[in-house]
Structures are given as C-alpha cells and as structure tokens.
Amino acid sequence: MKATNENISPKKPASTQKDEVVIHAKGIKVGFVDNEVLKNITFDLKRGENMVVLGKSGSGKSVTIQCIVGLLKPDAGDLTVFGENVAEMNDDELKQLRMKIGFLFQSGALYDSMTVRENLEFPLTRVLKLNDQQEIDKRVEEVLDGVGLLDAIDKLPSDLSGGMRKRVGLARTLIVKPEIMLYDEPTTGLDPITSREISELILNMQKKYKTSSIIITHDMECARITADRIVVMDDGEYIAEGSYKELQKSDNKIVKSFFSETI
C-alpha cells in the first residue's frame, strides 16, 4: 500500500509543513453523459487552510469534493491528495486515504437505525478497529462534548433537529481525527442562528483538530466566518479567488451577485 502514514504526511520542519500542499488539482474535468460538470478545475489546498468554494446550485461544487474522496473519477486532469494520485489508487489505498479525510454530508448522513453513540462508535470499530470499550467511550464523549451534544448520546437520529444532526455528523467525521475535512453545504436548510453556530463550530473544530478544510457553500455568512480563501465557481469553472474582503471588491458580475445578497 502506497498511502501509509509515513509517506502521506512526512515529518518536516513546522514552517515547511504549514506551506505543504495537501490537495493538488490540475485541469480536472468531469462529465456525465452529455453534460460537462467540471471543465478545467485547478487549485491547491495547503495544510491548515480553510478554503471555501462558493457557487450556485449545479455549478459543480459537490462533484469537486466527491472526486477528492474517490467517489467519482475525473475524466481528465491530475488530482493528488497527500502527493498520491486518487484516480490511480486501488481499493486498499483509497481506504487508507479516506481514513485521513472527513466528509460532512449535506444531510449529516447519520445511520437511521443506530443511536448517536452507535453512529460515533461505527468509524472507531469498523475503520480504526478499536476494541478497547473504555477508549471508545472516552473518544465518543469527548467529541460529542466538543459539539455540545453530550446529552443526546442515546438518542436516535430521528429525535434530533436538523442542526443537531449536522453537529453529530461533524462529530462522527472528527472522531477519527482526519487531516482534511470536506464540508458539503454544512449550513443548507438551517435557520440563520443555527447556521452561524455551525459555521463557528467548523472554525473552532478546525483550530482544535488542526485540519485543512474545503467548505462547499452558497451561504455568504458561513463563507465570511470560516474562509481563509474563497474560490468562486460558475458552470464548472473557477472564475475568481481571494479572501472575503478581496472578493467583496471584485468587478465580476457573478461574484458581485453573491456579495450583493449579503448587503
């Protein structure tokens, strides 16, 4: 297996590690039947960085992160994560890679038939293969406490609100201590107050677990709170890039339309 701990994140001096590119995408193209969803996507994600991808629905944002975890394969271009080409990985290598990537789905994607505790135990027992129940309990309680839902530990997902489901989903991805977090529209369908809480939680968790993140959203408040850098997508292409303040001054019509809604 190529993607081991050693060659994925080799120990380097702190300053070099901060500039290390963890995801490198160059000329990515993805198409479905007669529809080209990603046309020519190029970006780098550095270690510890929060990159927000803004774009309207159907612009190809989610497809980008699905390629990163190998759920979809690009038709053309290079996509490397921790220096390894995702498209060339076999099942075992992909599994090793996925253990280092957390993916928060739009719906939270909690397993309906399991309680919150069992949802959180699932990746520990099935992915990390932990057997020590004390260690499992400790990690479950610690991460649930971090998202403020320790009281909901024995509840079923059907008993939770939308915001609580997202928090538990976040806890479930963080419990394996991933190095990269991918958020697929984390605030969609939530009220403004809960959206803000989730955005702040994402930021706090990023600081606590020192992850690099890609946040797919069209929620400008979420982008403002979480982004180190924002990339704007339209019709399968990146059309602008910069900090929140830089993009606020952009003359691009589509970029302007995003910011004008927040004024």
Binding site: Q96, I101, Q106, L110, Y111, D112, V127
Partner: peptide, 22 residues
Amino acid sequence: GSMKVNEQIDAMEVSGANPLQY
C-alpha cells in the same frame, strides 16, 4: 434505497468502512 438517498451509504464508503460487508 433510503440509505442511498440520504447519502448514508456514501458516508460509510468515504469513512473507509465497507458498506458491502456491513
């Protein structure tokens, strides 16, 4: 089918677990 629609199978797969086995 419901797990597929709610992305639960994808969630299992991207976590590194094996949905086919489970």
